[in-house]
């Protein structure tokens, strides 16, 4: 099992690097799809099949297809403008991300943080209830307020999209 984790982690890191390095934006987008797949595989190993499936369905299946859709329509033969060049702002971004990464890594090095107390929903309980049923129950009881707030946020986005699309029609 642990072998598979390292395998998928390695592939997803390589593909994530590919997103940055590839000159052709379509290749970058495809690398991102591959990264999402590896993440989904890791979710499966964490007993979160539902999250894994939704990851593939929403990110790889819908959002990235829209990315590709736009890239296809805008694609130019001149891909050099997307090439990885270093300038001040990018250097700054690399530095900040580096600091953040060191912080996360030090947190993970702390052995006391690795295995905390088991929560209310250990793996056995999730498998007994079923992860989809459990997520549904929690969403409509304990987390009903955040759930509804997100629904309103998405509704606003949908209405905004409709208005932008309508504007062109006289």
């Amino acid at each position: 099992m642990i072998v598979f984790f390292y395998l998928f982690a390695l592939i997803s890191l390589i593909l994530a690097l590919g997103v940055l390095v590839f000159k052709n934006p379509i290749h970058s987008a495809l690398s991102l799809v591959g990264t999402f797949f590896c993440l989904a595989a890791i979710y499966v190993m964490l007993n979160a099949e539902f999250v894994a499936v939704i990851q593939v369905l929403v990110y790889a299946g819908a959002i990235m297809v829209l990315f590709l859709f736009v890239l296809m329509l805008l694609s130019t033969k001149d891909n050099d403008q997307y090439a990885l060049k270093l300038n001040v702002s990018r250097g700054l971004a690399v530095a900040i991300t580096g600091v953040l990464m060191i912080q996360v890594l030090t947190a993970f090095m702390d052995p006391t943080l690795r295995f905390g107390e088991p929560g209310a929903y250990p793996v056995e309980r999730i498998q007994e209830i079923g992860s989809i049923a459990l997520i549904g129950q929690l969403l409509f009881t304990e987390f009903v307020l955040p759930f509804e707030v997100i629904s309103i946020l998405l509704l606003v986005a949908v209405i905004g999209a409709v208005i932008i699309a309508k504007r062109r029609v006289p």
Partner: peptide
């Protein structure tokens, strides 16, 4: 849901 993910 797996089927939806794959067909997508």
């Amino acid at each position: 849901l797996f089927i939806f993910a794959i067909t997508s």
